[in-house]
Amino acid sequence: MKLMTCPVNGARSISEFVCAGEVRPIPDPNTTNDLAWGAFVFHCNGAAGIKQEWWCHTPSDTWFIAERNTQTDEILRTYLWGEVA
C-alpha cells in the first residue's frame, strides 16, 4: 500500500487522497485576453519531473501541496498552503 503524508493527519493510504493538478498562478480574468485564458484553462506542463501539486485528503477535506516526482512516483514532501516552501 502506497502511503502519503497529510500535513494534518499524518501518513495515510494513497487511496484516501485525490490529486487536483499542478500548482500554478491564475492570470487575472479581468485583464487576460481569451487566448491566454484558454491557454491557462487547458494547457499544462505535461512532461515528467518534480512538480508541486494540489492534493486533498478526502475524509478530512484537508487541501495541501505535495512535491512529487511524476516519473518515479516518489513523494518528496507535503505541506499546507502558505507554509514556507
Binding site: A39, F42, H43, C44, N45, G46, A47, A48, T70
Partner: peptide, 17 residues
C-alpha cells in the same frame, strides 16, 4: 512521450499522462 517531444519544439498542449 508526447509532452517530452512538445517541450523540444516549445509547444504547449493539454495532454497529461
Amino acid at each position: 512521450s508526447t509532452p517530452r517531444i512538445l517541450d523540444l519544439v516549445g509547444l504547449r498542449s493539454p495532454i497529461y499522462i
